[in-house]
Amino acid sequence: MRCQPQSSHQVYIWLKNKQTCLLCDEMTDAAVPICTDCEADLPWLRDQCERCALPLPMSGLTCGQCLRQSPTFNDVVVPWRYDFPIDTLVTRFKHQGKWPMGRLLAELLGQLLQNRFADGLQRPDCLLPVPLARKRLRQRGYNQSEMLGRWLTAQLGIPMDDHLLLRVLETLAQQGLDAKARQRNLRKAFALAEGAQVAGRHFALIDDVLTTGATANALAGILKKAGARRVDIYCLARTPKPSD
């Protein structure tokens, strides 16, 4: 299996046999290139807000922001806090083209989702990657959310539609902006493709990191307004509050 979707050139072969851990370079017998010790040491997100998955000191709580204004999306599935080494892996995948890093994280997210589905989490009808602005797509050469979605589709058997959501306005990069600035930045930034079939369907938005939730809220709002029955968020990592 090639680690890069829709490519005829192989830069990394994903084999189901002994591999080298991408974190410590030790050999591993796991089906993915990470050893048992390194996987256990990842910053797994345990106690979190029941609505937006914000890291909290105890489980079963709802954060203050969600109590003040409930998010537009329904559920968030996220394996890790945005902390070392996940932050480094995501950055190398997202900004440096280190696709094996993203492939590894997608595989582990897929395993978590399979467990959650077995425990009763509703399976979505369709996966929707967060669209990337055209200028940024030209600069980077790929949309990391779309790549994650394709890997998850192959693993979970859930179809993906990478044309249903459109980024219609170029906006400032979200990094470095506070929550209010992110919301202002995203006003009218997204739209549905002409003729998009949304009513009554359950979607899951795919992204790499959930920070303030502004992008997720904006996209979920568009989908819900068009009649979507449910919108969940699947992402790799969740950042803590800035003060933390």
Rank of each mutant, 00 (worst) to 15 (best):
D29R: 07
D29F: 12
A30M: 08
I34E: 07
C35E: 03
T36K: 12
T36G: 12
D37T: 10
E39V: 06
D41N: 02
D41W: 03
L42K: 01
P43Y: 02
L45V: 03
Q48L: 14
E50D: 10
R51Y: 15
C52P: 07
A53N: 05
A53P: 05
A53W: 08
L54S: 04
L54Q: 05
L54Y: 03
L61E: 05
T62Y: 04
C63L: 03
C63R: 01
C63P: 01
G64C: 13
C66A: 09
R68F: 06
Q69W: 07
Q69F: 09
F73S: 02
D75Q: 13
V76R: 03
V77W: 04
V77H: 04
V77T: 11
P79R: 01
W80R: 04
R81P: 07
P85N: 07
T88C: 14
V90D: 08
R92F: 13
R92A: 12
K94V: 11
K94R: 06
H95V: 14
H95T: 15
H95D: 14
H95P: 12
G97W: 10
W99Q: 15
W99K: 14
M101C: 11
R103S: 14
R103F: 14
R103V: 14
R103A: 15
L104K: 05
L105H: 04
L105I: 11
A106S: 13
L109K: 01
L113A: 02
N115F: 02
R116C: 00
A118Y: 00
L121K: 00
Q122S: 09
Q122E: 08
R123T: 00
P124F: 08
P124Q: 09
D125G: 04
D125H: 03
D125N: 05
V130L: 10
P131H: 04
L132T: 10
A133V: 08
R136D: 08
L137R: 15
R140A: 14
G141V: 08
G141W: 04
G141I: 07
N143G: 09
